[in-house]
Amino acid sequence: MRIGHFKETYVSDQAVFATATSRFWLGILFALLLLFPFVAGDYLLFMANLAGITIIGAVGLNILTGFAGQISLGHAAFIGVGGYTAAILATRFNLPFLICLPLSGLMAAFFGIIVGGPSLRLKGLYLCIATLAAQLILEFVFVHWESVTGGIRGINLSPPEICGYVLDNDFKYYFLTLAMVILCVTAARNLFRTRVGRAFIAIRDRDISAELMGINLLRYKLYAFAVSSFMAGLSGCLWVNFLKTVTPEHFPLMESVRYLAMIIVGGMGSILGSIFGAIFMTIVPEAISTVLGLLVNTFPTAMSFLFPLQQVIFGLLIVIFLVFEPHGLAEIWRRIKNYFHLWPFEH
């Protein structure tokens, strides 16, 4: 039982993991994450990579939509820009992976800034529709600019190589994914300890008064678009290098909606929420297909319901969380933690 803790300096009060207990649990979590690939089977490793790559994308969207309040229906397209950049740089220009990775992020950030450019004048619905248009236009480019993107057949890549070390299976790739997830989550967490993150939240909560407090709205909205799509680009690069292929069908509008669902289910305006949401939304489709797989013996056509059932469940999750638990899984987690924090004297 821990009744409370007292902080002696401002430094410790401002620390992210303020207490010895939380540092202890963080250490345990890190150790488990390092051990995981040695005990996990192929399927779990595949899923872990997928979840990690999705987490990076979800953290990016949450910074833009959850923290800075700028809704985006184009997140999948930004991930796609990152993915295509990585694939083109690797196959056409033979650039090494460690150079492709940041360049994919930068390219996506560049597109993010272009789309975010009008965000100073466009609010709410108008911005939402502008990002929708960006999604559709980029999708069109992916499919139709065949000389560069390979059209619907896409581009195939060979496995990435880091300093002569080839990441040719899911086990090796896991460590890359883990490192990138830790890097992105930490960077995002850091951002919200500084004036930049505070400015994002201020713009979301009351953009008018934020300007009178000295915040340059355009600059910070563009920052939000840039960071968000940079992470989307990283996620896209990791994704195509993991699958070793990129095709337009990976980045449809529905995928943008899936990312929105992630941050809603996980918790808008919460980094931890992005992680929960990404993991949850990676597991859900698998769970659905597992259940349908069990039904195949009784209903031979069960598998054909996979895709529509996923859509119904994504939609239901969005609606149910927004109506009943608008702060998402992160809030549920906080309540559970508080319960144990003072346990057994919770009343």
């Binding site: 960077a187 995002a188 850091n190 951002l191 500084t194 004036r195 930049v196 993150g197 505070r198 400015a199 939240i201 201020a202 979301r204 909560d205 009351r206 934020a210 407090m213 000295g214 915040i215 920052y223 840039a226 960071v227 305006g269």
Partner: peptide, 26 residues
């Protein structure tokens, strides 16, 4: 700003006097 603590609300006021940029913030 209802999404922030009292302390962060106050810190926000100091925005113009701080220097942290996007990269140094990350």
């Amino acid at each position: 700003y209802h999404g922030m603590s009292v302390l962060d609300n106050i810190k926000l006021g100091a925005h113009s006097h701080l220097k942290t940029g996007l990269i140094s913030g990350l």
